[in-house]
Design a protein around this nucleic acid. Sequence first.
DNA 1: GGGCCTCTCCCCCGTGCGGCGGAGACGGAT
DNA 2: ATCCGTCTCCGCCGCACGGGGGAGAGGCCC
Lengths: 220, 220
Amino acid sequence: MTPRPTVRIVLADDERMVRTALRAILSAEPDLEVVGEAATGAEAVSVVRERRPDVVLMDVRMPEIDGIRATEQILATLTDPPRIVVVTTFENDSYVYDALRAGAAGFLLKRAEADALVQAVRLVSHTDTLLFPSAVRSLAAEHARACPAPAPWVARLTGRESDVLRLMAQGLTNAEIARRMEVGPATVKSHVAAVLAKTGTRDRTQAVIAAYEAGFMNAR
Amino acid sequence: MTPRPTVRIVLADDERMVRTALRAILSAEPDLEVVGEAATGAEAVSVVRERRPDVVLMDVRMPEIDGIRATEQILATLTDPPRIVVVTTFENDSYVYDALRAGAAGFLLKRAEADALVQAVRLVSHTDTLLFPSAVRSLAAEHARACPAPAPWVARLTGRESDVLRLMAQGLTNAEIARRMEVGPATVKSHVAAVLAKTGTRDRTQAVIAAYEAGFMNAR
DNA sequence: GGGCCTCTCCCCCGTGCGGCGGAGACGGAT
DNA sequence: ATCCGTCTCCGCCGCACGGGGGAGAGGCCC
């Protein structure tokens, strides 16, 4: 393997014992170096600004400023910011999503084995690769929910009917749709009726709901 | 670090050169051993069944059966299945989602550095940790889109107004909502009017759209 | 006691909407 | 040549909906 440069690490956790444990694990590796610790989110921001580490292990729950906000602040204020790995106890924590949105480079469970921790830090330090607990599965499941297989009726809509439904789903009245499509209002009424029939709905509101639920609005 | 047991690996990729390159990279590590190769999805399934590796590096695009289906079959038919890492070329491949749904333990880009590859294999071989390319960001972004920060008007709705909007967004008429809430139709009309005012919409359809766009339907 | 908000309910009125039935024109299938 | 699907448009009818304006009961705050 290529000779590894030293990875400079800052630990942010409000519990001293956790920091000590992490330091012990990481310091045992010759290529990893803990260059700073912080017990609060605010402290984390200033310590990172000062020590310029390669990687930050950030606990989510901390006094004053939580790990998510601290992550945001670090990424927003520093040029060439460190890779931030968010650490938490429970994997179905909703913090996962917040952390990702905040720009965290990785996510780790506290129950992870020492070995995994060390390799995770190395991995995240020199790649754009995110690493992740099995909580990603729920993310993927959520994605599946957000992008359901298009309902059968979607394929049965004619071109104009799709256009009409799309405009309906933007809250336009029949008259507005007619103007937008440059056809007569009566034509729009016909298309709307066809859409209602094919979607099995009784009014435009239900049709719009069907469009959303079918992921019709996400397509194209 | 703890003494590492040997990680047995199967490579599945339809291009011989890719397999050769991966084998060269992985074999350079004393603790990694390539115990089999496959050029098609079907072959991958049988080779894995035969060699019982710890980790499979699976290309998505392969003849006969693609990597996703092969992953599904392996996970469905084998007890104590290997950890499967799906490999692809482009990171915004929609295969990412399919791979996760199929139960892949990890996801790697072909452009990943050798170093990252080696560590990824080690990491995935002995943890339940998924590792991931920056494509996760798009997943997270998608999640953010599906769960946008609630629009300011959401907090301004009273309890009953929220109830009414929720039922509106299920396609119910005012009369149906009234029955469902066990109040008079006139009451529902009042609440609907309040909802329209607070959401800045002009009819129930637009209100329902606002509810969907604000992630109001995902809440609770 | 007096505001203020919420929930409840009433009236009238105009209209956008959806249901019904029909029709002419174009084009592709057979 | 015939049928079928699509797009275009017409009239009529009933009603659910939304706007406007109001009102009483209960709770909360000061």
